[in-house]
Design a protein around this nucleic acid. Structure first.
Lengths: 243, 243
DNA sequence: AGTGGCTCAATGGTCCAACCAATTTCTGCA
DNA sequence: TGCAGAAATTGGTTGGACCATTGAGCCACT
């Protein structure tokens, strides 16, 4: 009959702790890297047990908002605000070649869209930042004579950030982690990623020209080269000795 | 020099608990809804304190894997496996219009790609299943004279499943939940979703014809109607009284 | 048969006090 | 001044206790 009778909330201690803590962070204008009060102090101030404080902080730690260092303290890892919306995403499986290809398909969809949105929305500051990362990546490519995962990833991150939608970066970060968890070594393909190199600059050029469809097309080409590399690696691989 | 010397793990109690628990769940083939051992039993069996067990379970609860009911027990809420990857998504200030649009942008990218892949890969069985969901949705539309979220969602799920990539369903499910958590009422737009109705069948037709680009185009049209509805709703809305 | 109220055991939620382990800070000697 | 060792700080863990809620069993009463 009436689904509008939700169960009343009689207690919610740890949620209350987090709410209070979020308010504290906002009031003190704490940013990432800054240290928040010790568990003992929080427990005393909030009039709750240290255990309750710990459960609350464990929640935040699980959400990646906070980092605890034994003997040192608890530090903010990301910006927190009282009106955050959390959506834990747990991805199952993916520890095989099919899993790698699956992450690439997601990347293909998201990177293309992000590049297009970036071409629409990026302002001068964002463009400058992307170009800076691009230069760093190209420099690393020259000196080390090969693709560098770190600089490459930072370039893409800059693009995602400039897309104006934080979800792009977060989701693709998950894909990226999934990808690298399995692929410590490039499956025997020595020049893995080489083919993708030139497309970084072409992507940037299309973004800078505010050409969404052009940027999308270049991003698709980049992902295609990675997929090709991966297939070559799979061909080299006879049997998988993964756990 | 060598980054291949990871710091040895002297302590990782709660992670170890979760690992053991994941193994237990797999061994006992427990599925969603089933009850796991009580905290006291886990503490005794694993030779750790009950507090440690609680911190571990708090992690899983925060990830939405488990639900704790005081006086009753702890129950599985989702399938867990030892090789899961967790990626908590956080949308700062997600309780506003921009947050909704952010989830829609992800959906636009992923639904389009999934529809295209589905057009390539769906076999007879998958096509039949999608058409069945489509018929159910259209029937619900006729009888109830309006879009039904449930049947609509099941249709899309069938498409994602037929895409051959489980990540599509998992990620878009997260977007979907994020979307609906905020939007309990369609912002005053009475016929929300009406415009999207016809595109469900056109998407199916392009998939059945194994026309990837056609399917992608129709999926994009569908998302566009939802975005339009949302913008109309935002126009109706003067101030936000969300918490 | 069924309804309502009662007890009672089981279970998660909270609290406390102590100790362990890693880190940081202080101190005093060379 | 520099640095090694002591001391304080802080998160991690333990064990035990009690509270609050749930659910099952029981029973009187209708």
């Amino acid at each position: 009959m009436t689904d509008l009778l939700p169960p009343i909330q009689t207690t919610a201690r740890d949620d209350a702790v987090l709410k209070a803590l979020a308010g504290f962070v906002r009031q003190e204008a704490l940013g990432p890297g800054e240290k928040l009060p010790t568990e003992r102090i929080l427990a005393e101030r909030l009039k709750v047990s240290r255990n309750t404080v710990r459960e609350a902080l464990t929640r935040w730690e699980g959400l990646g908002l906070v980092e605890r260092r034994q003997g040192s303290g608890t530090y903010l890892k990301a910006a927190v605000s009282p009106d955050m919306l959390h959506m834990p995403l747990t991805l199952a499986g993916g520890n095989d070649f099919a899993g790698l290809m699956a992450t690439l398909e997601i990347r293909r969809a998201l990177e293309a869209e992000a590049a297009a949105l970036c071409a629409i929305r990026a302002g001068r500051a964002e463009l400058a930042e992307i170009e800076r990362k691009l230069d760093l990546m190209e420099e690393a490519f020259q000196t080390r004579a090969g693709m560098s995962s770190d600089e490459d990833w930072e370039f893409h991150q800059a693009v995602f950030r400039a897309s104006g939608n934080p979800l792009f970066e977060q989701i693709i970060a998950a894909m990226y982690e999934m990808f690298h968890r399995f692929w410590e070594h490039p499956l025997g393909v020595r020049d893995f990623g080489h083919a993708s190199f030139p497309y970084h600059r072409t992507i940037f050029e299309r973004i800078a020209a505010h050409d969404p469809e052009g940027a999308r097309a270049e991003a698709l080409k980049l992902i295609a080269t990675v997929e090709d590399d991966l297939k070559r690696g799979a061909a080299n691989l006879k049997l998988s000795d993964r756990r």
